[in-house]
């Protein structure tokens, strides 16, 4: 096993209800680094995380996590592997019938037989890390969106996983909450040496914290590298996505002949 690589995807093909979502995606995710996976909405970024977590199986191709082939794992081995993974869902996915404290304690109670006072210490430590130790008695319904995500983050690191996957952590957050999350993701990576996979379409935030990024569009990887390499990338599609131009080769906007025609000068498309 390559010691520097934690997750490997080789020629992954996946289609859902007749639509091909991934058409031969290959990707290496380095251990202990933050990797950002970016791409336009609807390119199956969340699906990619679910493939890595074994919730979905690819039609063909290989997915290796920590040297184990996820699609071939038996149920039990898969559940054991998942104990090493944390995943932060877009909605937070806190258990609505449990308090903040119990939400964070949940994985500990299920997977360990630690005594109550030790669980309490760990939970408070994790909540302290996300700055919400004071909110431990609140119910999820009483939290703001940003706080929900921070609690969910505390929950996903409760078992000290090797890998953490963030599904759109910045979507729909105000600038302060976004800043907090950026700081948390970076701190967690530094202090715990977590392999982090970040799925997002928020380009500046993602590029500011990741060590390595890749851009997916049309079921394929269209560009990968360090943030600096990507900024210098020669592909027009990469440039268009990074700079958020409304116009360009990625076909989610109807192609226009040239900017001039949009100003009503030529009327070329008519």
């Amino acid at each position: 096993m390559d010691s520097g690589v934690y997750i490997t995807l080789r020629d992954v093909v996946f289609s859902r209800s007749g639509r091909r979502i991934f058409d031969g995606v290959s990707l290496d995710i380095p251990r202990g680094k933050i990797t950002a996976i970016m791409g336009p909405s609807g390119t199956g970024k969340t699906t990619l995380l679910r493939l890595i977590g074994g919730q979905l199986k690819p039609d063909s191709g290989e997915i290796l996590v920590a040297g184990e082939s996820v699609p071939k794992l038996k149920r039990k081995a898969l559940y054991t592997l998942r104990e090493k993974m944390g995943m932060l869902f877009q909605s937070g996915a806190l258990f609505t019938d449990l308090s903040v404290f119990e939400n964070v304690a949940f994985p500990l109670r299920v997977h360990t037989s630690l005594p109550d006072d030790m669980i309490r210490d760990i939970v408070l430590m994790k909540l302290e890390a996300v700055g919400l130790r004071g909110a431990r008695r609140l119910m999820p319904a009483e939290l703001s969106g940003g706080m929900t995500r921070r609690v969910a983050l505390a929950r996903s690191i409760a078992l000290d996983p090797e890998l953490i996957m963030y599904d759109e952590p910045f979507a729909g957050q105000d600038p302060i909450a976004m800043g907090v999350l950026v700081k948390l993701i970076r701190d967690l990576n530094l202090s715990m040496g977590l392999t982090s996979v970040l799925v997002s379409h928020d380009v500046p935030e993602s590029l500011s914290i990741c060590h390595y990024a890749c851009i997916i569009a049309d079921g394929q990887v269209i560009g990968e590298g360090t943030p600096d390499e990507l900024r210098q990338h020669s592909s027009e599609r990469v440039q268009q996505f990074l700079q958020g131009q409304p116009d360009g080769p990625v076909p989610f906007h109807y192609p226009a002949a040239d900017i001039g025609s949009d100003w009503g000068l030529g009327g070329g498309s008519a």
Binding site: G53, Q55, E83, M87, S91, A93, L94, T96, H111, R155
Partner: peptide, 16 residues
């Protein structure tokens, strides 16, 4: 509702 709010999914990802 637990399914819609990804609670079931997140439980699965926690190895439960």
């Amino acid at each position: 509702l637990m399914k819609a709010t990804e609670q079931l999914s997140s439980m699965e990802m926690m190895g439960v």
